[in-house]
Amino acid sequence: MTTEAPTRSAPFTLRERRQQRTRVELVDAVLAVIADDGVDALTIDRVSQESGISRGTIYAHFSGGRDELLRAAYARLGTDLVARTKEAVSQAADWRGRLAAHARAMFDLAGDPRLGRFYNVSGPALITDGAERGIGSAASAAMIREALEQAQSAGEVDPAVDAGAVAVLLVGSMREAAIGVAAGVSDPERVFAAYSRLLDGLAAP
Rank of each mutant, 00 (worst) to 15 (best):
A5N: 07
A10L: 15
F12L: 15
T22D: 03
R23T: 02
V24D: 15
V24H: 11
A29V: 09
A29T: 07
L31Q: 01
V33C: 02
G38V: 00
V39W: 04
D40N: 13
T43L: 01
T43C: 03
I44K: 10
I44V: 15
D45W: 02
V47P: 01
V47S: 05
S48T: 11
S48D: 05
Q49C: 10
R55G: 10
T57Q: 12
I58R: 03
Y59Q: 04
Y59D: 02
A60N: 11
S63I: 10
R66W: 04
R71V: 04
A72G: 02
A72K: 02
A73R: 05
A73N: 02
A73C: 03
A75Y: 04
G78P: 05
L81K: 02
V82L: 04
R84I: 01
A88I: 00
S90H: 02
Q91I: 05
D94C: 06
R96S: 13
L99C: 14
A100S: 15
A101P: 00
A105G: 12
G111Y: 04
G111Q: 12
P113V: 07
G116T: 05
G116Y: 09
V121P: 14
V121W: 10
G130S: 02
G130T: 05
A131R: 13
G134Q: 11
G134K: 13
I135A: 02
G136P: 01
S137D: 12
A138M: 08
A138Q: 14
A138F: 06
A142K: 14
A147M: 06
L148A: 08
L148W: 10
A151R: 13
A151N: 11
A151E: 13
Q152L: 12
G155Q: 08
V161N: 11
A163P: 10
G164P: 01
G164R: 08
V171K: 06
G172W: 07
S173A: 15
M174K: 04
R175C: 12
I179D: 12
G180W: 07
V181Y: 10
A183H: 11
G184W: 09
V185D: 14
S186E: 15
E189N: 10
R190I: 15
F192A: 14
A194W: 07
R197N: 09
R197E: 15
L202I: 03
A204S: 14
A204H: 14
A204L: 08
